[in-house]
């Protein structure tokens, strides 16, 4: 690994793992995928590293998801991590509930909308999102608008469902 890639690793690894964690809901898997992404960068150093790394990582998530299905493993998008920050039993419970609801809402988005949203959360500009996802720059705003609206609506729909059930 060259010094440039080492610096790239230093700069982008946390962001990449965080995005992958939000996408997969599994920290270990996120770290594995991030490692695999950087391993590929070692063998073929990219010119535009940030979009390249995130695009490769998202492709790996999709591939990994397909393999998981064929192996009969369930996707872990809705998995509830047991090791969330400990802030007391009540706060812990509420937080876990909230995380699960957000994950469920995120799962209702289509792939592109979800990825655009997660990339934006990592500070990607519209240019970078367009490059990473292969979109026209002019379509990024519309994609994000749709993604945000659907996410909020899906989240609120669960709240309404919970209230009706209770």
């Amino acid at each position: 690994m060259t010094a440039d890639l080492a610096q790239l690793f230093e700069d982008l690894y946390p962001s990449l793992v965080r995005m992958l964690y939000r996408r997969t809901g599994d920290r270990d898997r996120a770290e594995d995928l991030a490692q695999e992404t950087f391993a590929r960068a070692v063998s073929a150093p990219p010119d535009n590293p940030r979009p390249w790394l995130f695009a490769v990582a998202l492709n790996l998530v999709r591939e990994d998801g397909r393999k998981s299905v064929t192996r009969g493993r369930r996707l872990e998008l809705l998995r509830n991590e047991q090791d969330l920050p400990a802030a007391g039993p009540d706060a812990d419970f509420e937080r876990n509930e909230d995380v699960a609801r957000v994950r469920a809402a995120l799962a209702k988005l289509n792939e592109r909308d979800r990825e655009a949203l997660l990339l934006r959360a990592e500070g990607f500009g519209y240019d970078e999102i367009a490059v990473t996802l292969g979109l026209a720059k002019g379509a990024v705003g519309t994609t994000l608008a749709r993604a945000r609206r659907r996410l909020v609506e899906a989240y609120r729909a669960q709240d309404r469902g919970n209230h009706v059930a209770s």
């Binding site: 964690y21 939000r22 090791d83 957000v102 995120l106 609206r149 996410l151 909020v152």
Partner: peptide, 18 residues
């Protein structure tokens, strides 16, 4: 409203602290 709320929701999905 959607913009701020969606940012908050995505922010909820933080990495566990272990």
């Amino acid at each position: 409203e959607f913009h701020g709320e969606s940012d908050r929701l995505v922010g909820v999905l933080e990495m566990p602290t272990r």
